[in-house]
Design a protein around this nucleic acid. Structure first.
Lengths: 214, 214
DNA sequence: TAGATTGTTAATCGATTAACAATC
DNA sequence: TAGATTGTTAATCGATTAACAATC
């Protein structure tokens, strides 16, 4: 029996996205089915973990055969919510923002950039991808008149909180925050933080741990 | 008693980096001590979790007073390994690579970019920050003659595995992988993956879960 | 001392894993 | 049917939390 979204463990959700990525790659080949063991090997996991994770989707596998790749992709996308397109705005047209706007992976997973905002007069009017950078002051007006689901926040830490609360007030459902500061999600807006420096620190920790095992 | 690095839970390590970020911000103010409750509030955690995490560093707090910010920063940096500088190379001078090379947060945490590589003849010789893009073919020679600790991998998925194994063979201790593909860390090289599309998918999941709670 | 906050214990909660019955 | 692989159970492992004694 498929689990409801609220019952699916967060750890499983992250891995479902990983499975999806592998499956999409496999689908470009000729294979129709994939075994839990093969998925596990590709991602460095245990096969029993893969099966347990996939069992959250309902009985989508075929005993003795494996999981049908096409069905699995559909089932995972349905759970993740990426079986439909998501309209995304980018706030912050600095180096990182510009790079993110051109990131192929977003588009491939159904995330559609529809507008770019910045507060810097020197940037307003210039183009990021095919989008003219709009004045941050027009954010609320734009969001009120367009169906926007998510925002990518790539502004300096000093501006992140005020922009985030404006996005929340404007009714944005989710924020992917690249600013290196904790942004509180007060209301119904979900915030997902990505701190690149922290990722590098975690890597550094793993390295020093491996170098001096005791 | 301080725990040895190998005893510190991975979940704690991620949060130690978060604490460090908050503490560095606090240090710019006038406060000398911080209480576990205050740190917890800023990051949306429980105070008991903050205390348990910080207890991995040894008895660094002062009962009745709080944690001395300066000491705490030193203790966390020592555990994470960021009490010294790390030399980092960037492989892949596309949009994302260029943005990462200019990312302030890396430098602030002691990660020092020392060279940039790409295989595209059109990019080789051009400058990224102050660094001329070097031919990927000279990677091994460069690494053999310079003290390099980490590599940021920002190449297309199709190239990621071969570049990663070259980095491993060259003796790089850690790879921060931005390519949307699982890179196996066969030997002593540690790989830390950052998949931006997956972060957006996790956000999408949280949003649909919140929207339809049952 | 009195008040406050840490450090640590014990209980709870959640996630991972091995094993195997179910079944394609 | 025989062989293979899933789906699921039960056991293990690890992380979180509340509570409070220790102590500044």
């Amino acid at each position: 029996m498929p689990k409801s979204r609220s019952e699916i463990p967060v750890a499983t959700v992250s891995r479902l996205a990983l499975y999806l990525r592998e499956l999409q790659q496999l689908q470009r080949g000729a294979t129709v089915h994939v075994r839990s063991q093969s998925l596990a090997e590709r991602l460095g996991l245990k096969d029993s973990q893969v099966r347990r994770d996939l069992s959250c989707l309902g009985p989508v596998g075929q005993r003795g055969v494996g999981y049908p790749i096409a069905d699995l992709i559909i089932a995972i996308e349905r759970v993740l919510g990426t079986d439909r397109a998501w309209n995304v705005i980018l706030v912050g047209a600095g180096n990182l923002g510009r790079a993110l706007s051109g990131y192929k992976g977003f588009d491939q997973q159904g995330f559609r950039l529809v507008a770019v905002f910045d507060s810097d007069p020197n940037k307003i009017g210039s183009k990021v991808e095919e989008f003219p950078v709009q004045d941050l002051d027009t954010l609320e007006f734009f969001v009120a008149n367009t169906q926007i689901d998510l925002a990518i926040l790539a502004v300096p830490a000093s501006a992140a909180r005020s922009v985030a609360s404006r996005l929340e007030a404007a009714g944005i459902a989710g924020i992917l925050n690249f600013a290196p500061i904790a942004v509180q999600s007060s209301g119904s807006t979900t915030v997902q933080d990505v701190d690149l420096a922290i990722e590098l620190q975690r890597l550094a920790f793993s390295v020093v741990r491996n170098q001096r095992p005791h």
